[in-house]
Amino acid sequence: MKKKSLIILLFPLILTGCQSYKKVPYLQDALQQTATADTNVPDMSLYDAHIMPKDLLTIVVSCPEEPELAEPFNLTIATPASNTGNKSLTSQPALQQYLVDNDGNVEFPVLGTIHLGGLTKGEAEQYIKDKLKPQFRETPIVTVRMVNYKISVIGEVGRPGTFTISNEKVNILEALAMAGDMTIYGIRDNVKLIREDNNGKREIITLNLNDQDILQSPYYYLQQNDILYVTPNKTKAKTSNISTSTTIWFSVVGSLVSLASLIIAITK
């Protein structure tokens, strides 16, 4: 009889524990559904970042057959010398960085104003090649890189912060890994993505990381300057309120005790 009563009392707790666990894993039921996935879904591995206003670019032009013709297009800037004791060390010149203006334009040597906004890195390289062809006997090599490609992860993660992405490609799960993954208090099915488009318009997208469909989402890969916000669950919010209230309560009690001690000391 006692065992039955104990089981009845513990049954709701067991159910609650099971339900809570269901909200924790990412990509639930992915293994079971992978085999029946739609084969017509576009290959998301082909993602390439697009150049946006306020991006910083390095553009390198080279031509092994005519290196002297490429020199005017590769501007460098002097870096300050560093002092080590009584010795002065000079640093190698750094490549000029080009800021994309609000209209998507860049001021490039010799060519003048070129429009790169909205193009992928590969498209920008081909565009500059086409512009340079009349000035070279052989097709030049053009390399475009984004210097300030960064994303931010805040909220219920282990190490919130802003991260620079060197390969200009990062997905949501990689971003969370860089930020130390979600804490147990993070809501997996209510992650907010804050994104700004070329026109400066911001949108907030709600993502469900419990659902395997996130792998095919157009928001799976992050753009430069994206912000991921992991919202806390109710347990975290309640804990925060209790902690704040407790701190205030101890502060009030401490003040009253100090005041009472002062009054006793005066009246003696």
Rank of each mutant, 00 (worst) to 15 (best):
F11Y: 08
E123K: 13
L259A: 14
G104M: 07
G254M: 04
M1R: 10
P218D: 01
L262N: 13
S255K: 08
L209D: 07
G85I: 00
G180H: 02
A81C: 02
F108M: 07
T84H: 01
A81I: 00
V106D: 02
T231D: 06
Q126H: 11
Q216E: 07
H50A: 06
L31I: 12
I184F: 03
G200N: 08
N190R: 13
P160E: 01
V106N: 04
L75D: 08
A237T: 14
S152P: 15
L222H: 06
K23C: 03
P109Y: 00
P12H: 02
V257T: 14
V24Q: 09
T76M: 03
E203T: 15
F136V: 13
L262A: 13
I264K: 09
L27S: 10
K129C: 10
A265N: 13
R159Q: 12
A177F: 01
N86G: 00
K236Y: 12
K236Q: 10
N167Y: 03
K234T: 13
T139Y: 04
S217N: 11
Y221A: 07
Q126C: 03
P140E: 00
L99R: 11
I214G: 08
D197C: 10
T79I: 09
L173N: 11
N241F: 05
T120V: 08
G118F: 01
K121I: 15
S91M: 02
T183I: 00
K133T: 15
C63T: 12
G254E: 04
M44R: 12
M52V: 14
L207I: 14
Y185R: 12
F250L: 11
L176H: 11
V60D: 05
E203H: 09
W249C: 10
I242C: 02
I204C: 06
K54I: 08
F73S: 02
A78W: 01
P140T: 09
T164Q: 05
I248V: 13
I51Y: 04
D197S: 09
I248F: 05
P109Q: 01
S261I: 11
C18Y: 09
S88F: 04
I8T: 12
N148A: 03
T206D: 06
D38N: 14
M146D: 06
I7Q: 02
N233Q: 04
P134V: 01
N83S: 00
Y219D: 11
I187V: 14
H115I: 12
N74L: 01
L27F: 07
V110H: 02
D103G: 10
I7F: 05
A179T: 14
P25V: 05
V61T: 09
E168P: 15
P109C: 01
E168Y: 05
L27D: 11
G155F: 03
D38H: 01
Q224F: 01
N167T: 15
L256E: 09
K150P: 14
R188M: 11
N148R: 09
N105P: 13
L9Y: 06
S20G: 06
N199P: 14
Y221V: 07
R159L: 07
R195L: 07
A70M: 00
Y185Q: 09
G254V: 09
V142R: 08
L9E: 04
T162R: 03
L132Y: 09
P80W: 00
P72L: 00
L57Y: 08
L95Y: 08
N225M: 07
P232W: 00
V170H: 03
A237K: 14
T58M: 02
M182G: 00
L262T: 15
L69D: 06
K4R: 10
